[in-house]
Amino acid sequence: MQSYTLTHLKQLESEAIYVFREVVSQFERPAMLFSGGKDSIVMLHLARKAFWPGKVPFPLIHVDTGHNFPEAIDYRDWLVEEYDLDLIVGSVQGSIDKGTAVEETGTNPSRNGLQAITLLETLEEYNVDAAFGGGRRDEEKARAKERFFSHRDEFGQWNPKNQRPELWTLYNGRYNDYEHFRIFPISNWTEMDVWQYIAQERIALPSIYFAHKRKVVNRNGILLAESPWNTLLKDEVYEEKLIRYRTLGDMTCTGAVLSDADDLAGIIQEVASSRTTERGNRSDDKRSEAAMEERKLQGYF
């Protein structure tokens, strides 16, 4: 007898497709935040499935810090052309030039904190009422309570006490003037699910997720890539190592991991046996125990 059950990946896929269709039906001007990272790439794949054979009915927004891995930008541009997508680029440099954002100083200035400013400016400029993000609840403690439909006030801020209960899959996307929503279609996915899905669906990725040789410097246990924005401290040297990236952020704050995994089977094995979270390599989460929660309150994810 036929068994009417779906694998965990098929269930997660179906759930995400359902969320995409709800949002496009409930909101007027949705957009997808696209970082070039694996989570946003998977999200886009799911969006294509949700509206196929139609086009993805909303634009992608890329917040460009100017500190990107070149591979991420190449990938973004290829994707936009391959799938006939609309792309909006919000520029952190633009916010700095306008004076709405102030560049950090020091040997390793990060534009990570400035992203939220440019993001909110871009959302406002295009009047976006629902912004899809690739956040997952397994990433970090503060995200474990995130909703699929995450309500933001008129300042783009997240108030953990003011989130709507989400019953069954009856999502409530109604909002008052100046409020908007962040939408997380892959809330229930884990890092492992994302990698398994990439393998199952044969999704193309930026090559820096796979093992390659690169010059890096070990700073407080984090392997930072050689880049024009990083100044070596006294006694520091770049060394060539075989590395790959588990997450993809700015070159100034994303740490590499030593790895020889040059295919998905290798990466999945590595994720399965890994003893640290992927965000363990992000220097931006380490500033305090509640770092992520505080950045969320400010309008970061």
Partner: peptide, 22 residues
């Protein structure tokens, strides 16, 4: 394009973990 990689086949990936239920 050296910036982009796509697996030619998923066969190398252990299928048993891909077919779990939830």
């Amino acid at each position: 394009n050296p910036s982009i990689k796509r697996e030619d086949s998923a066969s190398a990936v252990d299928q048993s973990y891909m077919n779990m239920d939830l």
